[in-house]
C-alpha cells in the first residue's frame, strides 16, 4: 500500500506539492481570504433582520461619507497615526542608538533593553488599564508629577484636545521597545570598519549618523514605517478601554466606529463599507510599501 502511494505521488509530483499546501490554503481561504471578499459584498447591501438584505449598490458608501460620525472617526484615525507613528519610530530609533553608542559590552545593557522592550509583551487591555490609571485626573501618577512641577495638569483623558495624544503616548510606551529591537538588529549589521574609517577621517557623531547609519538603516526604517502605520490605522483596544471613544467622540477611531456600527447598532452594510474604506487605506499603504521597499524581490 505504501509503495503504491509513493509510486502514485512520484508520477504526479505536481499533485504532491498541492497536497502539502492544502491544509494551509483551506484554512486561509475559508477564514482569511473569503471573509474579505464577502465583506466587500456585504457593503453593497442594506441588511435588516426582519426583511432580509436588499441590494443597494454604492448607497452605503454615499451615506458613509455624508455621516459626520464616520468622517470624525476617519479624521481621528489619521490624527492618531500622525502622532503615534513618529513617536513610536522616533523613540525606538533613539533607544536603539543610545544603547548602541553606550556600548554593547557594558554591564546593564541587557537589563535596560529588557525593561524598554517588556511593555510590548503586555496585552492591549493591560496597557490601557495602566495608562488610564497613570492619567487619572485625581490620583494618577502623571497628574501627581505635573503637580510636583507646579504645572497645571491637563485632564488628559477627559479633555477632547488631550485624549488622543494621551492614547498615542500610551501606544508608544507599548510598542517603541519592539521597534528598538528591530533597529538594534539593523545597527548590528553595519560593518564596524565603516565607523573606524569615518573616525580616521575626523567625522563627528551627527555626520556618522547622517552618512552611515541613516542610509544603511533605511530598509529597516521604511519597513517599520509601513508596519507601524498599518497598526496605527487599526488601533482599537486602547481607544475602547481608555476613553470609550470619548470625551464626546474625540477618540472614536475607525475600528471602534466599525465595531459599534456592526455590533451595537447592527448596521451591517454601513459597517462593512467602513471596513472596505479601511481596507483601501491599508492597500494603498501596502502598495506604497511594496514600491518603496521593492518587496517583489523577496519573491525570488
Amino acid at each position: 500500500m505504501r509503495a503504491k502511494i509513493r509510486g502514485f505521488l512520484y508520477r504526479h509530483r505536481g499533485l504532491e506539492g498541492i497536497l502539502y499546501v492544502l491544509p494551509f490554503a483551506a484554512l486561509w481561504g475559508i477564514f482569511l481570504a473569503w471573509p474579505v471578499g464577502y465583506g466587500i459584498y456585504l457593503s453593497l447591501f442594506e441588511w435588516s433582520p426582519m426583511q432580509g438584505s436588499r441590494f443597494v449598490g454604492l448607497e452605503n458608501y454615499i451615506k458613509l461619507f455624508g455621516d459626520a460620525r464616520f468622517l470624525n472617526a476617519l479624521g481621528n484615525t489619521f490624527k492618531f497615526a500622525a502622532i503615534a507613528v513618529p513617536l513610536i519610530l522616533g523613540l525606538g530609533l533613539l533607544f536603539a542608538l543610545m544603547l548602541w553608542s553606550w556600548g554593547r559590552t557594558r554591564r546593564g545593557v541587557g537589563f535596560i533593553q529588557a525593561v524598554l522592550f517588556f511593555p510590548y509583551l503586555l496585552t492591549v487591555s493591560t496597557v490601557a488599564i495602566t495608562w488610564k490609571w497613570m492619567f487619572d485626573p485625581d490620583f494618577g501618577l502623571v497628574t501627581h508629577a505635573f503637580k510636583a512641577l507646579k504645572i497645571a495638569a491637563p485632564v488628559f483623558l477627559t479633555e477632547p484636545a488631550w485624549a488622543l495624544p494621551a492614547i498615542a503616548f500610551a501606544t508608544a510606551w507599548w510598542l517603541a521597545g519592539y521597534r528598538m529591537v528591530v533597529f538594534q538588529a539593523g545597527l548590528g549589521e553595519i560593518p564596524q570598519e565603516l565607523f573606524e574609517v569615518a573616525s580616521i577621517d575626523g567625522a563627528v557623531f551627527h555626520q556618522k549618523f547622517l552618512h552611515i547609519i541613516l542610509p544603511l538603516l533605511k530598509p529597516a526604517l521604511l519597513f517599520s514605517l509601513v508596519l507601524t502605520l498599518i497598526s496605527a490605522f487599526r488601533t482599537f483596544g486602547q481607544a475602547l478601554m481608555m476613553t470609550e471613544g470619548g470625551p464626546g467622540r474625540s477618540t472614536e477611531v475607525l475600528a471602534l466606529y466599525l465595531y459599534r456600527t456592526a455590533f451595537e447598532y447592527f448596521n451591517i452594510g454601513k459597517a462593512a463599507a467602513s471596513g472596505v474604506v479601511l481596507l483601501v487605506i491599508m492597500l494603498v499603504l501596502t502598495l506604497i510599501g511594496v514600491k518603496l521597499l521593492g518587496l517583489k524581490s523577496e519573491l525570488g
Binding site: 482569511l32 471573509p35 474579505v36 465583506g39 456585504l42 498599518i230 475607525l254 475600528a255 481596507l279 491599508m282
Partner: peptide, 12 residues
C-alpha cells in the same frame, strides 16, 4: 493578503 486588516472580515 499579508497586510490586509482583519477589520473588514470580522463581520462576515
Amino acid at each position: 493578503f499579508m497586510l490586509l486588516p482583519m477589520e473588514v472580515s470580522v463581520i462576515p
